[in-house]
Design a protein around this nucleic acid. Structure first.
Lengths: 194, 194
DNA sequence: GTCTATAGGTCGATAGAC
DNA sequence: GTCTATCGACCTATAGAC
């Protein structure tokens, strides 16, 4: 089972490089050098460069799908679900920072079944997210704006968090979650309650 | 001057391909095929593949810098400036949709002076944006949250608009601007004003 | 499980004919 | 201004020794 450990190391190292330069700009020689072996030796642990990419992406995509389903099947008010989803998305981002770069930027280099699977999971995540927002509008807790615009403005922030957060480690995860939820749901502008 | 027209066509076509597959995955042969000529013929109009990238990116980066400076030097309340910046950012995105993909994802493939110039302009844009938010906090119009979090949550949405808007052409530009400003600044949640 | 050597292909770019 | 032909570099992946 030692082989699996080595494989995990390769996947992790690859994720870091993919984040830095993008999938196509990272060569097997780059990856091998980072692991302190020769490129040919990598193939004892993995089948191809593409396999690395698809294993990285599909694992995280599955986590997203599962987490969203779990939140969505509970019978809470939409606003509560929305907060939960945002916090969940932040949690995953903090655990899989590097992989999220590939998930966002390199998914188009997947092929065949893997590409289909990814696209399906991504669509499902978005659809669930949108349904929650729609429900919130019905329940009267969410503004009557175009729901696509609201979905996009939340999701785009969550999806690029992987780029920004590693550079701001002074901000603690708990503060990030709290203030991100507030900022995304309630906006920047101070409200006059008097 | 016909040569310049052809060059513009090449740049435009390249931007579209770079958006689709990323800089490194697009070959000069791909680009030539899209232009209905042979790859060697491209070199009558451009010096290198990298030159295409840097001309695309630096032009738009300059537009961003200029526009931001223009808004920032006026003496308006911070909240007004913030609205103007958001609308300006949306305007550029609609004019240079394809190039924004490279600006966001392929800038790391720039080299030397071009890379430095890009990074400097990007930093300057962010700094100006942050200063406006800080001013808003001082003026009492913006929440006392961490300004980095607020900056990021606005900027991340604006920066990925290029990916989303082309798929949603049913949404008119005017509505987009209006609702995007509201969503980013005032949030999704309906406020109780009674 | 890592190595050297290399196959077989594609890349960016150039030379020179038309 | 476009073409054909091609160079030298680099790519992913394999074969086979140790």
């Amino acid at each position: 089972m030692k082989k699996k450990i080595r494989k995990k190391e390769i996947l992790k190292t690859a994720a870091g490089l993919f984040k830095e330069k993008g999938y196509n700009a990272v060569t097997m020689r780059d990856l091998a050098k980072e692991m302190d072996i020769k490129a040919a030796s990598l193939y004892n642990h993995i089948d191809s460069k593409q396999q690395i990419l698809s294993e990285l992406i599909l694992e995280v995509a599955q986590r997203f799908t599962e987490g969203m389903d779990k939140i969505d099947c509970k019978e809470n008010p939409a606003l509560e679900k929305l907060e939960e989803v945002i916090e969940f998305h932040i949690d995953i981002t903090l655990s899989y920072t590097d992989v999220l770069a590939s998930l966002n930027n390199d998914w188009m280099h997947l092929e065949n079944q893997e590409l289909e699977d990814y696209l399906m999971m991504r669509q499902r995540y978005e659809d669930n997210f949108k349904t929650i927002i729609k429900k919130g509008i019905e329940e009267g807790s969410i503004q009557h704006y175009n729901e696509e615009i609201m979905l996009f403005s939340i999701l785009s922030t969550l999806r690029t968090l992987y780029l920004w957060y590693p550079k701001k480690e002074k901000i603690k995860a708990e503060i990030l979650k709290e203030q991100m939820v507030d900022t995304l749901l309630y906006g920047l502008v101070r409200r006059n309650l008097t």
